[in-house]
């Protein structure tokens, strides 16, 4: 029943001449949570940004190799990057709602993609906020600024905004690193809920968090994918000594 959704085939990423990702090859399963862990600067964010081609905005960045999403290479010529980004949502480290109302934040994506009817937008906004476990807290103040919410609520608003375009994949780059433990717990709970409908790829520095919420874990080290396996295996008895050293905190 496990199905491959994203397949990275020999991906190399260069910033100018610096090789930041080296021959990354692994498969991400549909409707699972895949955690990317590794010390700072090892290329986790860079890899994440390859999946929705956010690296396109960095002039010095160059990608080699293939990333297949649903079987087709997103780096092939003639790929519709807009459609790709609609299909691959992203949530950032710092909650970054737009300086506009909660409603407009969530409706931003759907409006971009041409949905104008009020009742359809209303419906999408509600469904997305429900999906992000925020609806009950904001249903009476949809017109107030999204930036007026607490950090944890803002991050859930960003998740609602990301799922409003009905993506298949959600990329999350350290989504809880700016949040307190309670807000973090709510996001983690939400991630587990989200994987029923979405394929989640999450970068985290918190190993316990990766252990709690992910099905598979990939360990990156200085641009290499050192080990990739089922999460319980990764955190109890990894194959590679470097993984062992990292998860036990011998270096980090």
């Amino acid at each position: 029943m496990e199905k491959i959704l994203v397949s990275s085939r020999g991906v190399n990423l260069f910033y100018d001449s610096a090789r930041v990702l080296k021959d990354i090859t692994f498969d991400i399963m549909e409707k699972q949570v895949t955690a990317l862990i590794g010390p700072s600067g090892c290329g986790k964010s860079s890899f994440l940004r390859c999946i929705n081609r956010m690296n396109d905005f960095i002039p010095s960045a160059r990608v080699e190799g293939e990333i297949l999403v649903g079987g087709s290479d997103i780096y092939a010529g003639g790929v519709d990057v807009i459609a790709l980004r609609r299909n691959v949502g992203m949530v950032f480290q710092k909650p970054n709602p737009f300086p506009m109302s909660i409603y407009d934040n969530v409706a931003y994506g759907p409006r971009l993609h041409g949905i104008k009817q009020k009742d359809r937008l209303d419906d999408i906004v509600k469904q997305s906020l429900v999906g992000a476990a925020l609806w009950d807290e904001v249903k009476d103040k949809l017109k107030t600024p999204g930036t007026g919410l607490s950090g944890g609520q803002q991050q859930r608003l960003c998740i609602a905004r990301a799922i409003a375009t009905e993506p298949e994949i959600l990329l999350m780059d350290e989504p809880t690193s700016a949040l307190d433990p309670m807000a973090t717990a709510r996001i983690e709970e939400l991630v587990r809920e989200l994987k029923k409908r979405y394929t989640v790829v999450i970068v985290t520095h918190n190993m316990q968090q990766a252990a709690r919420i992910s099905d598979r874990t990939a360990f990156f080290l200085m641009g290499d994918l050192v080990e990739y396996d089922a999460t319980p295996k990764m955190f109890t008895s990894p194959e590679d000594k470097r993984t062992e050293d990292y998860i036990t905190g011998r270096f980090g």
């Binding site: 609609r86 950032f92 300086p99 971009l112």
Partner: peptide, 27 residues
């Protein structure tokens, strides 16, 4: 205007002009 806003907009599939018009200008 924080880069975060632009990133978020691009990640939702906005073009450069859409991002400028709907996010950068108002901000």
């Amino acid at each position: 205007v924080p880069k975060d806003y632009r990133d978020a907009s691009y990640a939702l599939g906005a073009s450069k002009w859409q991002t400028i018009r709907k996010v950068v200008l108002p901000a």
